[in-house]
Amino acid sequence: MGGPPAAEGARTRAARRTGAGFGRLLVAVYAFFALAAGVRAGWQLATRLEEAPVAYLLSALAAAIYLVAAIGLARGGPAARRVAAACCSVELAGVLGVGTASLIWADAFPRATVWSSYGIGYAFVPLVLPVLGLAWLRYTAK
């Protein structure tokens, strides 16, 4: 990643702010989750979709959201910020919704997803990540 051309002006400054410093660590963690969930979901969907379609499709959806959030945070223009904020919000709703649902209706989730039990299988990082993402977007907007 070289330096962006100076002509991009305000957009470049915004990009530097969401995608640099602590933001780059966020991008790294988002990219990791996109990779981990994506590889796993891709394999599962390709080989045994019928076993637990809801769980596997949810994992694939989560992977896609993580990827878009990572790209949004890394780019950091006005539109990218909105996309990243939307992804973080969907993620937060997803982890809270699926987390609660997986505890109440355990039978409906025979296979774990990244969001099952609020992301306990991933050290609760899926729960903390969207909160950090939204907080970072707010912080860098000032």
Binding site: L35, R40, W43
Partner: peptide, 11 residues
Amino acid sequence: GMATFVGYLLT
């Protein structure tokens, strides 16, 4: 668990 194994290995 082949899927899990390959997924973790690749990651």
